[in-house]
Simulated assay, not measured.
Amino acid sequence: MPEQHESKKCLACGGEALYIQDVDLVDKRVLGVQWCQAALYRCASCGHIELYQRQEDREWQERLERQYQEYQALPDYRCPLCGRVGKNQTCPHCAMLCTPVGPKREDEPPPPGQPEKKKKRGLFGGKDKPDWER
């Protein structure tokens, strides 16, 4: 069964723009956005042609954005052996059971396996450099 496409309002004359076909835009950049396909509409009264992002592509993009937000909401875990931080409860590098990471505190020592960061000093061991010079 063919898909139903609604008509659009023409941006040039305000008439009715009807769906013609999907256009393949693989590896072409349109206004800085790389689309795979677009829906082509043509105005019946003035002949103006317009490209619209397909509804399927818009829904797919929204679904990806929701999945990314859900992934970012997952807690972080730190491996007690190698010190790597990730979203898995088991470290993918050394297969150790990881511990949940809480909010970072300033006085907290670095995790095992990671060297402590040294503060950069000014010329001749003077005062600490400001953050923007590090």
Rank of each mutant, 00 (worst) to 15 (best):
Y52P: 01
I49A: 15
Y41N: 01
G122W: 03
E106N: 04
D57Q: 12
N88P: 00
G14W: 15
A44S: 13
Q61E: 13
V33E: 13
R29S: 14
L18G: 00
D27R: 07
Q61S: 09
L74W: 02
R105E: 15
R58S: 08
E16L: 01
C98S: 13
G125M: 04
R42K: 13
C98A: 13
E133C: 03
E6D: 12
H48T: 14
Y19A: 02
K129G: 05
R121V: 08
L31Q: 11
K8L: 11
D22S: 14
E3V: 11
C91L: 04
V26M: 04
F124A: 02
R134E: 04
C82V: 07
Q34W: 08
G83D: 00
L74F: 05
Q37P: 01
G15P: 13
Q53M: 12
A39P: 01
Y41T: 10
R29N: 09
W35Q: 01
Q55F: 13
W60H: 07
H48L: 11
G86W: 02
P2I: 03
M1N: 03
G86K: 00
E59Q: 06
V33K: 07
E56R: 04
E116T: 11
P100I: 14
Q72S: 06
V30E: 09
D76H: 10
G126Q: 02
P100M: 09
Y68S: 08
D131K: 09
A38W: 01
Q89K: 06
P2H: 05
P109Y: 06
Q61K: 05
G14K: 09
K118M: 14
Q72T: 05
P80E: 04
K87R: 08
D76S: 12
G113P: 02
Q21G: 00
A12T: 10
C98N: 09
Q114N: 02
Q72E: 14
K127F: 11
E116I: 01
L123H: 04
